[in-house]
């Protein structure tokens, strides 16, 4: 099985970036020859991947395979060393800080540890999703925000089922609730594409399932592109249209999730 996967990995890399982008479905993300090194260690070693608009892609792989690094490189939260990165039609590597901020406001990112501001209310945290829309400090805190922004933030909280906890401080929410607020913050961004780095990893199985179903449901409803990393192979199969496996900083597997089972994906971890 491992040998078969290696063969397929070579094939994927050789085919190049736009192999999966057909004219009818423009690509939201095109990555080519992406390299990232941390000191001596090469974490991403020439990764190539294209994601058509509206597709849901699960990135799987063992710890250190480069999944999180890849997502962070896509947003330039980590600067890549080499390669092409085209996000929503823009060469993100060439953008200066102002233009980069403008592009980032259209890309939602859900973190494994939700990364909410702990002492702020759920509502303020959700409002932060729109912070890049204006230079004014009115979105810094819910007390300063306009009625329109507050109503939009409440609508986002309502979509994740937490409108009744709008006033609660983020550090007093459960793990599952926190992650749902983080998803509401992403919705507040009005994103074109959403990336999620192991969004359910720190949650208990029930909460994890709820968060994944919610995230996937909302993305599908709005027709958004979703790229997420996961160690849960069930989540990769159930919630993605396509599964991409990373091993040793390279793509080792790339196939539609339909017809896959956990056993076939486990070989990526071999």
């Amino acid at each position: 099985m491992t040998a078969a996967i290696s063969q397929r990995a070579i094939a994927v890399d050789a085919v190049g970036l736009s192999a999966r982008c057909i004219p009818a479905a423009p690509c939201d993300l095109v990555v080519g020859g992406l390299v990232k090194r941390f000191g001596e260690a090469t974490v991403l070693d020439g990764v190539g991947l294209s994601v058509p608009r509206g597709q849901s892609v699960a990135l799987i792989g063992s710890n250190g395979a480069g999944k999180s690094t890849m997502l962070r490189c896509c947003l330039r939260l980590i600067e890549p060393d080499e390669g092409e990165l085209n996000l929503l039609g823009q060469n993100i590597r060439a953008l200066r800080s102002g233009a980069l901020r403008q592009l980032r406001r259209r890309i939602g990112f859900v973190f494994q540890k939700h990364n909410l501001v702990p002492r702020n209310s759920a509502l303020t945290n959700v409002l932060h999703g729109a912070i890049a829309r204006t230079r004014s400090p009115r979105l810094w805190h819910q007390a300063l925000a306009s009625r329109q922004s507050r109503e939009e933030a409440m609508a986002c909280l309502d979509m994740v089922g937490l409108a009744d906890l709008a006033e609660r401080r983020a550090d007093r929410l459960s793990g599952g609730q926190s992650q749902r607020v983080a998803i509401a913050r992403t919705l507040m961004q009005r994103p074109a594409i959403v990336m999620a780095d192991e969004p359910a990893a720190s949650l208990d199985p029930v909460a994890a399932e709820e968060v994944m179903a919610l995230l996937f449901g909302l993305m599908k409803k709005q027709g958004l592109t979703l790229i997420y990393t996961s160690h849960n192979l069930r989540h990769a199969i159930d919630y993605a249209d396509r599964v991409v496996g990373l091993r040793g900083g390279r793509i080792a597997f790339d196939a539609a999730s339909a017809g896959q089972d956990a056993a076939s994906l486990e070989a990526v971890y071999g």
Binding site: L75, L77, R101, Q102, L103, R104, R105, I107, G108, F109, F111, K113, N115, L116, V117, P118, N120, H128, G129, I131, A132, R135, P137, W140, H141, A182, R185, T186, Q189
Partner: peptide
């Protein structure tokens, strides 16, 4: 983490500091 999250959604340096 929260600083990275706000930077990631396009917040400027001052907004990250104050939020």
């Amino acid at each position: 983490g929260p600083q990275e999250a706000l930077s990631g959604l396009g917040a400027g340096r001052l907004a990250v500091v104050f939020c």
